[in-house]
Design a binder for these strands. Sequence first.
DNA 1: CAACTTAATGACTTTGGGGTCATTAAGTTA
DNA 2: TAACTTAATGACCCCAAAGTCATTAAGTTG
Lengths: 210, 210
Amino acid sequence: MPTPAPARKRRKEARPSELLAAALSLFVDKGYAATRLEDVATLAGVSKGTLYLYYANKEALFMAVIQEGIVPVLAENEEIAARHTGSSFALLEKLLEHWWSRIGCTAYAGIPKLMVAEARNFPEIAAYYYRNVIARGRALVGAALQRGMDSGEFRRLDIEQTIDVVIAPVLMLLIWDFSLGHFKDTPSDTNAYLAVHMDLMRQGLCVPRV
Amino acid sequence: MPTPAPARKRRKEARPSELLAAALSLFVDKGYAATRLEDVATLAGVSKGTLYLYYANKEALFMAVIQEGIVPVLAENEEIAARHTGSSFALLEKLLEHWWSRIGCTAYAGIPKLMVAEARNFPEIAAYYYRNVIARGRALVGAALQRGMDSGEFRRLDIEQTIDVVIAPVLMLLIWDFSLGHFKDTPSDTNAYLAVHMDLMRQGLCVPRV
DNA sequence: CAACTTAATGACTTTGGGGTCATTAAGTTA
DNA sequence: TAACTTAATGACCCCAAAGTCATTAAGTTG
């Protein structure tokens, strides 16, 4: 007796984004190599064969996940920076807030961990990510810092290093949440963490009032 | 014709550490799943069969790598903290400096990236690492911060959050070096980065002089 | 409703790599 | 130097998961 006819829907439009969401979730959780494409397909409510209808192979799927994850957030932040009037520190706050609302508190938040874990195995994807995300994000923060130093709001510091020191706690927060964060007894309070970071940065960066 | 006799040395004592060093290097570079035990063995100058003489399976090798990586550095830092007299900020500097000399600039520097990437796949190893490394490191920094706040040297801030904000740039530095760091045009200057971090922390943490 | 197009399936093939073990040879002992 | 112990080897087994494709059925057209 042949298997009873399974109910299968034809939804050509919706498949790619559903497959990407499933792949992102599993890649972030287990890592690239330990993720089975059959599991990705199942999580997307589809068979493995269908996945190959939309993505040529596992690496193409990975690349698509990363590209999708970039979204227009960088462009939006560049727009915010261009329009900004007010203190340079307020600009840093705005950038962080927007980035958080569009990446930090979404499923895309897992991408930094994924990219960090797989950068060495996929140098071309990593280079693409570096150019289109990291470099642009660093440029935004760097410009805000430069503006603040020029206006006398910030102390003069090595800009290139300061960019990385300012960004690190934010990136680390995401990476943490997707890795060792669960082993802490007391649940971490994201807002309090970011508040302390900005508090330390405000006093750390700004020229002390005499 | 049988293969000519290969020259093989018997070095029972040296094998384990050589295997661990090779495994650490490849695990950090490629990740756990993408690392082949045959490559680990080859890098250690030994055959795959020999590896199994010393470690029961791949996961046991991974666990050994993590345990080995802990070394007595935490204990040493606890000792440093206990003996310390002087400002609390100077204590933070001492802890960082010792940790850097014993972990940050050695092969063990790759362990944070490895642990972050694999925590979800090996919850028991991750829990072990959390208890024996993370928790103790956080306690050290937390005690230094508490001491500084009690003495009036530091501002009063949420200690738990501040611990993580202070540690994040240091961890991120290591993770960076083993992942996306290579894609930056200008080579990063570790000393300058740490100097800026400590500079920002000093002014950010300390009570402003009136 | 018959003929046709194509989204979707899942059984099948293939392969890379984890793990085993019979064999070999380095070193030791009498 | 013969007999013995054990470190080391690598050919082999086996399975899980990537990737394929003949078949099925959902939807469309006339």
